[in-house]
Design a binder for these strands. Structure first.
Lengths: 242, 242
DNA sequence: CTAGCGTAACTGAGATCACAGATGAGGGGC
DNA sequence: GCCCCTCATCTGTGATCTCAGTTACGCTAG
């Protein structure tokens, strides 16, 4: 008998683009990383080497390296005696761990970013914020998550700190799958957008401490919602994996 | 003709221990990561898949995955059209980038660690500090670097924040090769040990802010020495790679 | 209807092979 | 003497195969 499908998660990301200087491994990694940040995979979902490679149209070799990297990033973890890779189900302690790292590093990045944001960057950021607002109004979770990440990453990227940016991305990689579930929390959109608008205003006024405060509030609020989501979701999902 | 050897760096880490539940890939990764933190490899040194696999006594497959992970961690980078992996030669901007991340995260870890350090932990830490002092007195760079990492990691590990610990380790992974060269800087030992003794005292007195101040001073001083080392070393080594 | 067992399909891990490109040493032409 | 060309050897990349272990389905006995 052929075992269960669960291929719906893979349908969102098609086969790789034909080689254009980059390696297959790098494409697989980038594709899966973005998918994890965007919450395309649920916590506890298992990722098989062969299934992933057939879905992406390559052999297992590049996929194995990409998945190993994602494991090193904390976006996947080995699970069970089978050593199958799955999306981690975060514990409450890990959530606090991540929250405090995010508060420190993202406020640092925000402060450093202020000098690097010109009119054109500001336009992109405001646009992302507007799209996010629209997604919140219409309840479009996919669009919301994507523009939320774009909004934050546009700010942080302006700090011109590649290593810091990489660390922040890895934190988002870890919380991505859970955020996807947390956006359904009551009034999550409202509270989050409040912080986002405050951050945008602080950017315009070039107020570093107000910007940091808004970012910290956003992270803290999100962590609370994530913790609540975890309590509802975690036990149910760990018990029955289907 | 067979190309250059440069195998001296590999002699320090022998072949892997026989399988004991862990995978070969994990062993290779751990071995090379510790070697990088300890500065066994010089900035700019190239790591070849096949040479590494023969040195470690395995096939290229586990080595390739381990090296890819190290690249993802920033401990290695692809270089040249050959895509050969080498130990990165940090730029001054990257040094600042790392320094600020370290200041934020290591002071956070230190503050969290205070509650987790009991008498037995304190004894281990003091021991590491004493060994480090002795290494500084005798000018034993190997011993100094090893005990320096042990001293810091014992403190941070007491914070019981695995994710934070992982990020900090990655930062040390990046600076390891350079620190090895920086310890020869004039009075580096003296200034560094001053911060270390201050940190140890703060731990005993359970003074969080004094501990953070000592850690921050240690990181800042080290970053200065690293920057100076970079100016002396970087241009010379990038030009002629042997 | 349930409990237990056997087996088939699936899991990752590692080794090996083939391929394309880059590198660098050495020889030949100017 | 200097420059360019050539070729052997290195480089990573990706595909394929085998192996040992685990999982889960389905059958059979009670």
């Amino acid at each position: 008998m052929i075992r269960g499908s669960e291929s719906d998660s893979w349908s969102r990301l098609g086969p790789l683009t034909f080689d254009e200087g980059t390696t297959a491994q790098a494409q697989v990694y980038a594709r899966l990383r973005d998918a994890l940040i965007s919450g395309y995979f649920r916590p506890g979902e298992e990722i098989s080497l062969r299934r992933a490679s057939t879905a992406l149209g390559t052999s297992v070799t590049p996929v194995r390296e990409a998945l190993r990297q994602l494991e090193s990033d904390g976006g996947l973890e080995v699970f069970g005696g089978n050593r199958v890779l799955r999306v981690p189900v975060l514990s409450e302690a890990e959530l606090i761990d991540i929250r405090d790292i995010r508060i420190n590093l993202e406020s640092l990045a925000a402060a450093q970013a202020l000098d690097g944001i010109g009119p054109s960057q500001m336009r992109l950021i405001s646009n992302a914020c507007a799209v996010m607002q629209r997604a919140a109004d219409t309840g479009d979770a996919d669009l919301y998550l994507e523009s939320n990440w774009r909004f934050h990453s546009l700010i942080y990227r302006a700090a011109a700190r590649p290593i810091l940016m990489g660390v922040i991305e890895r934190m988002w990689l870890r919380v991505g799958p859970l955020i996807r579930l947390a956006v359904t929390a009551p009034n999550h959109f409202g509270r989050s957008m409040e912080s986002h608008r405050a951050a945008e205003l602080a950017l315009r006024k070039r107020d570093a401490s107000a910007l940091q405060a808004a970012i910290i509030r956003d992270i803290s609020d999100a962590a609370s919602d994530l913790g609540r989501t975890l309590c509802d979701y975690g036990p149910a999902k760990v018990a029955g994996k289907a």
